[in-house]
Design a binder for these strands. Structure first.
Lengths: 340, 340
DNA sequence: AACGTTTCCGGAAACGATTCCGGAGAAAAT
DNA sequence: ATTTTCTCCGGAATCGTTTCCGGAAACGTT
């Protein structure tokens, strides 16, 4: 339980702590043999420098923090793996926290990481987060912050995104090309940028093809499986079924799918479905769900590289927004059946 | 970017740092009005004590570390949520790392957390981990360590488990009761305790019902979707199909399911399937997968409470193994069809 | 022989907090 | 009035590092 400190090593070798430190930090003013000898005995004694003391002195911790809204769906975990890949390679540790889609928790997490003196942070905003004043202050004080997916226009930071508008547009157009006429959109909360972009993509695809989007066809649903279930149940009860639904994300699409199947309705025979932000889940369910895939690992790697760059080149900082390419995976759930 | 320190506050208020510290730590030897005044101005200045300095001095960090093999499957994330629930309530922070099922990474993670002076750790061993000497040393030096699910008999720590043997036995018996005769087991690596227990449950259920387990019916598969796919493909190619398969976990069962479906085989008509360690995934796929559910949140909460207890009552430590209750969720994938 | 350089190392300050020790002043006891 | 006790606060040591400063040899130069 007793930690071995630099002093223990110094005492054992009858030399000063500064010499030990020099040996470990590869300073020029130390004799080679002394250094080797010190490293050897230190290693044998099981000594390794205490990173806390170092952080306290250096005012930086070689740690970065990540705060995500949740990690029940595989999306964020996959992004985190990409982040870790980059930072582990560069000698940083990654502290992960989750806000549970709560603004309060998110803020607490961020403050905790700040107190822990992380050198930078990667953040994806929670559902509830509307007020970004605190983050704005951090950014204005020069704290390195990178946002991904759930970003805010008010913050001048590096951002990593996919083009939600474009892919929502394509996904909707795909349904139109399949010949569906009455297409609904299960949308997310209006406060979220990606949610609004996807909705706009949905609308503009209709506009391009001179189709009406009437009032009832856009339904603010939420982001969880339960939300999709609830809205689908309402539609069935009201006997107001569309031909097809473009859902803001996979969980809501899956929720809808479960209710449809339970009601004996066919997918895509009665209602076709398209999701968004695919994880491997989409191809496991039945019928396999057509969905927009995001390059999760790459999002993580890109965010990490941007942050790393900001950490190492303190002076020059021009906020960049990197838009990565998504992809529409067409599967059974959205195909037009020949005898439809 | 400049952090406000206790000295800044002291200078501003024209008093000593020790007084500030007293105010923050609610010491008895400080006048009430002084304390309130200090807290007010400190708050106004945006000061909060630096936890690193505190950790360095106190030799403990109020942080605990969690190392899990992966978090692509929702199982570990759900456990982690349970862990966080307990520790956040008790003023601890939770640092999460993942070993990626690699022994090397696991050891690195553990050492990194140790260096970070976490007060205790919760660990679930990686697939590769056979050598637990390092952990044994930690435990013998009194370091608080709690294992869950992927545990080792060689370590005398608190453990949280479900009774893998029992539930594998029940799952297998369920298939037997359904009337299946030729039942295969997709097993995990033999080195893992839970893997061996589940295999033994499979064997003993056969024994109880006086059924043979011949050599070919237990197939060491792995733990990933890809492993299940590979072995299933082999079986199909060799034209050696069983009536039913009991898989060591859900991903391998799902892998098998995907290959079966692709080959036009019916589930459960041609091959029935049962998985293990269910997450919400099992009920989303088609057909819904019969599977043994583990109480993920409760596993996390229990592990956290055990660790907490060990942290607060340093003296008395008797390693406990808590066995939580699982449950077999019977769904379509394992039902005997009447005209089977 | 006297001086300047170079090489290598020890001492001490610093990072930001906590806590022990002791001291000043007021209140209480003699 | 003097001593004792109590309340409240400042000074300094401490945690484990790194780094600046300076000093002692050893060496080379004149």
């Amino acid at each position: 339980m007793k930690h071995i400190t630099i002093k223990d090593v110094a005492k054992r070798l009858n030399c000063s702590v500064s010499t030990i430190s020099r040996a470990f930090n590869d300073k020029y003013d130390i004799r080679k043999e002394t250094r080797d000898m010190i490293l050897a005995t230190a290693n044998e004694m099981g000594y390794s420098p205490n990173p806390m003391a170092k952080s306290l002195l250096k005012q930086c911790s070689n740690q970065i923090g990540v705060v995500v809204p949740e990690f029940i769906n595989p999306f964020f975990p996959e992004v985190i793996i990409g982040i870790q890949e980059v930072f582990h390679k560069n000698g940083y540790q990654v502290l992960i926290m989750q806000s549970n889609e709560s603004y309060i928790h998110e803020l607490e997490n961020v403050k905790a990481l700040e107190n822990n003196m992380v050198d930078g942070m990667i953040l994806s905003l929670s559902l509830e987060t509307k007020n970004v004043e605190y983050y704005k202050k951090m950014v204005s004080q020069g704290f390195p912050l990178v946002l991904f997916n759930r970003v805010s226009n008010e913050l001048e930071t590096h951002k990593v995104l996919i083009d939600d508008y474009k892919w929502a547009f394509f996904a909707t157009e795909h349904l139109i090309y399949q010949g569906y006429k009455k297409i609904f959109h299960f949308s997310g909360p209006d406060g979220l940028m990606f949610s609004k972009s996807r909705k706009n993509g949905f609308i503009d695809a209709h506009r391009k093809h001179k189709l009406m989007v009437d009032n009832g066809s856009i339904i603010e649903t939420g982001l969880m499986i339960g939300d999709g279930e609830r809205e689908m149940e309402k539609l069935i009860k009201n006997n107001d079924l569309p031909d097809a639904i473009f859902a803001v994300n996979d969980p809501t699409a899956i929720g809808a799918m479960m209710v449809l199947k339970k009601s004996g309705l066919k997918i895509p025979g009665d209602v076709a479905l398209v999701g968004f932000t695919e994880t491997h889940l989409a191809q496991l369910i039945d019928p396999p769900l057509t969905s927009v895939a995001q390059p999760t690992h790459e999002i993580g790697r890109t965010a990490a590289l941007l942050l790393l760059d900001q950490l190492e080149n303190k002076g020059i900082f021009i906020p960049q927004t990197v838009v990565l390419n998504g992809r529409l995976n067409v599967r059974e759930s959205s195909m037009k059946l020949s005898n439809g």
